[in-house]
């Protein structure tokens, strides 16, 4: 079987599992709570995918929580205060984050390595403080009792029905999140395997060399950061619709660090690494919930041990090369 066929088969199997097998398994086993878990995994992996893209240009991004929070607030404010349709607020939240990322990114993307990591971490904290201070975000009380998403129709044709009329909202949200996750990662895969992707790889390896042969490094960095933040924004927007509330503490620093951990854990050389990493970390954390107060202790010990014995990510087990494995 040729590589192309294998690839098609793999994608087909993945889509089958996500859209048919999992809903069927949940239906059979009656574990409806898994929908919430899997929806969260899908959304978090979108945000982690964004972080992964900034890793791809050689920057350590610990600021995705800030953009998820911003996206969530944009969506919540538009829906609650201006009555905009929720479906329209998803791209708007993404665009808002992308524009913000361009403005913030222009100065800070000149920083490298640890400097960039530090300032993005600070950014997460600042997003929280901004949400606390601004009048429109309603301070520490946050925005709650956000209505469920309404109907989406084009020319009178209903594409997505009103969520308040659907009897199984959890399943509906699962499908929304899964579709978006698939779309995001397809886009990410396309970006990475395009001309821009190759240029990004050149940034990761040697920025000076890349710019010396005529790559517009400043432009590329900002574009990659904007796409990354766009993904953070849309995942935050849908999260808000699911939990139907948002507070300044909805996406704390721990979330930003988790997004980064997801990418690391999955392996940085592989587009689908963040998906795998998110799944492992989220489920691991959930399973450890049964251990009560030892949850954090076990979780962090496992992380440390993983770093001691597998410092290059889970996927490095299977893949011999680290960077640019895909042909």
């Amino acid at each position: 079987m040729s590589y192309k066929n294998q690839q098609t088969l793999g994608v087909g199997a993945f889509l089958f599992v996500v859209f048919i097998l999992i809903p069927w398994l949940i239906h059979v086993s009656g574990r409806w709570d898994f929908y919430y878990t899997l929806t969260s995994v899908a959304l978090l992996s979108i945000a982690s995918g964004g972080v992964w893209l900034t890793f791809y240009i050689g920057r350590i991004n610990i600021g995705q929580g800030a953009f998820a929070l911003a996206g969530g607030y944009v969506s919540a404010i538009l829906v609650v205060k201006y009555g905009v349709s929720f479906w329209l607020t998803i791209p708007l939240a993404g665009l808002f984050c992308a524009v913000a990322a361009v403005l913030i990114g222009l100065p800070i993307l000149r920083l490298r390595g640890v400097y960039f990591a530090m300032i993005t971490l600070v950014l997460t904290e600042v997003a929280r403080l901004t949400a606390l201070a601004l009048p429109i975000t309603n301070g520490a009380r946050g925005i709650s009792s956000i209505p469920l998403p309404g109907e989406l129709s084009i020319f009178g044709l209903t594409i997505i029905p009103d969520f308040s009329t659907i009897e199984n909202v959890k399943l509906a949200f699962y499908y929304v999140a899964a579709v978006l996750m698939v779309a995001s990662f397809a886009a990410l895969y396309r970006i990475v395997n395009s001309r821009i992707g190759h240029l990004c790889r050149s940034l990761q390896q040697n920025e000076e060399l890349a710019s010396s042969i005529g790559v517009n490094t400043a432009y590329l960095r900002v574009i990659a950061y904007a796409i990354s933040s766009f993904m953070g924004g849309i995942s935050g927007a849908i999260f808000v619709a699911i939990s139907r509330s948002i507070y300044p503490a909805s996406f704390p620093v721990k979330d930003s660090i988790d997004f980064m951990l997801n990418c690391f854990l999955g392996g940085l050389g592989y587009v689908f690494g963040p998906m795998l990493g998110t799944l492992v970390i989220y489920f691991g954390w959930d399973v450890l919930f049964t251990t009560g107060k030892y949850q954090l202790l076990i979780y962090s010990s496992v992380l440390i041990l993983l770093m001691l014995f597998l410092p290059n990510g889970i996927l490095s087990l299977r893949l011999p090369g680290r960077k640019g494995v895909r042909k």
């Binding site: 390595g113 640890v114 980064m260 954090l296 962090s300 770093m307």
Partner: peptide, 29 residues
């Protein structure tokens, strides 16, 4: 050991984050 073994400097950052969580857990307990 991690600095010796890992191929990218970012790995120490993940380790440091893990240690931060670990110390938090110890303090809590």
């Amino acid at each position: 050991p991690v600095i010796k073994k890992s191929v990218r400097e970012e790995s120490t950052m993940l380790l440091a984050a893990g240690i931060a969580f670990f110390l938090d857990a110890i303090i809590l307990l």
